[in-house]
Nucleic acid binder design. Sequence first.
DNA 1: GTTGAAAATCAAAACGTTTTGGTTTATACT
DNA 2: AGTATAAACCAAAACGTTTTGATTTTCAAC
Lengths: 343, 343
Amino acid sequence: MKVTIKDIAKKVNRSITTVSRALNGYDDVSSKTKALIIKTAQEMGYTPNTFAQRLQKQFTDTIGLILPTFSPRFADPYFSELLAGIGNKAATLDYDLLVSTRAPGEQEIEAYRKLIEGGRVDGFIVVRTRKQDARIDYLIDREFPFAAFGRSEKNSDYSYVEEDGYYGMQLIAEYIAGLGHKDIAVIISDPMLNFTGERMSGLRDGLSSHNISLKNEFIRTGDLTQKSGYDNALELLKRSDRPTVIIAFNDLMALGAMSAAQELSLEVGRDVLVTGFDDIPMSEHSHPPLTTVRQPVYTIGGMLCEMLIKIIKKEITTHQQELFKPALVIRQSTGEVDSLSEE
Amino acid sequence: MKVTIKDIAKKVNRSITTVSRALNGYDDVSSKTKALIIKTAQEMGYTPNTFAQRLQKQFTDTIGLILPTFSPRFADPYFSELLAGIGNKAATLDYDLLVSTRAPGEQEIEAYRKLIEGGRVDGFIVVRTRKQDARIDYLIDREFPFAAFGRSEKNSDYSYVEEDGYYGMQLIAEYIAGLGHKDIAVIISDPMLNFTGERMSGLRDGLSSHNISLKNEFIRTGDLTQKSGYDNALELLKRSDRPTVIIAFNDLMALGAMSAAQELSLEVGRDVLVTGFDDIPMSEHSHPPLTTVRQPVYTIGGMLCEMLIKIIKKEITTHQQELFKPALVIRQSTGEVDSLSEE
DNA sequence: GTTGAAAATCAAAACGTTTTGGTTTATACT
DNA sequence: AGTATAAACCAAAACGTTTTGATTTTCAAC
């Protein structure tokens, strides 16, 4: 049924060795037969059997990505975009991408081990790094190729890409302080995550240079979902001493916070300002459009992929470490004049 | 480095055949050695080499999914959710999911062919079926296992799952007509897509039973993105005879339409009503929350996956065809009273 | 203590490639 | 014509499994 190298060999009356070598462009086969073989392969519709190839060459042309998520039903556009960035780059470089999801913990490391032992992948992309990151410790220990989206507190002796969260939050702080606000609430993310600390420091430092400090009651922890932004904002805004600004640690929570405000008939951008972090596509088309910090997730995904493949191919041996300077994107959720409705 | 069956064989002083058979639970190996072998395999951290297995058994435990999308950077939550549904079900059934994206056309079929010929996948899930669908024709012709999300005009002699788009749009039509509106605009999807026709008929029939007909100027075609919803709605709403209702063929376009309305200082739910289709997670938390038709995409993804695997394993031989009755979800974008702000 | 059947084990082939280490054939040089 | 060199080709091994078709061992029954 399926055409193998053997069928071609028989047809052109050569050994399978020659066919293989012709197809792989070795120069110890005459250009005449090489042409013939390639033409015949074409005609017969030959496609090499990937598994046989991978078994023989001892690599898999596959990179692994295990999304750390509690619910398998992650609808986070941030991850979709990252995934698209990684996946598309992988495809252009002729790599497969093997994706699965696993909640942080025991099972997670086991999943990494299985893929490595089973010879399933050549390397990993590790995302959403944590302060203490067992995945990174494990991979370093095993000396298995990987590239990470984000640093880790303990051990940063590996290749990574990250946005400068400290700087990003400083931008927000400067901007908000510049608008004269003082009653500022913040919805942060899980303190285990490495970027939470980064962003918090940036925010604190940025505000304190304007002599503003965050009240403890105005610091709430969300789980990066729209719902948690909504819930937290609702509680904040129902207080008699409600804040005039809500700074969320990602866009999804910011969007949730805007809904909460609108639910309470507050006008976002006037009665309360809201900012996010990430600049997911939706944030440009929300109402009002969201002021946020742009993190080029799609691009970062591509870079990570490229970086990892270079590591796998041993094209680079030193650790590559990229720290992006993110940019502030000012939109109407912080009160900028709406360019369309001129009133 | 990596533990193979051979290493185990040496350790327990048995042949590799015995080890293999023990590990696979055959009963022609004594329970004592079976136990020993399993224990040793555990201890040595053995994980079978997937590629060797797949080469030998002639199947791949992999299902293919080629997303038909023009831009590889698809951030459509609809697809994310479908993907999650398929992927998670596949994982629980011990199947891999091989995903790639390809724009409709020549290249698309070629991608299918490559995966089949290369023995990469055991079957496909085909999504977003078209009226004339070359993918389906090809797969039927090749007699290759597949399950589709949606029917096709020409040839529906295969296994599929679909929501009843005709019925869904009828629900919308009834509801809107019941509210007394007559100036109704609609943002439809590409007429090539099979569901476009279904939904359009449902809408037309539903409205005409209330003696309402759609004006041609009020019918616009979008590409299912938020931006196209925004653009189309903007044009519709700037007319002097602007419609009082905008019915979008998916949620993303509906959300875009809401932004456009708000941009023009129209209150959604009062000055103009907006409806969607799909009920993506975001629609519940938009402002105002979106009235739409619930399509359980996550579940459908899982069903498709299950269906396909049964076909692959030849557990079913007749074509399974499921048509979901979707449900109307009424929210504030069509003027329902907001339950929280009691005023 | 044979015998025969059942239980336990195994050697070898196969899956479709690539790679190794040749051998054969053609070509060029004395 | 003989030899060295280069060009073209190829048989066999290898990758790590599963499967086929034995062969060996055990043990009950005579």
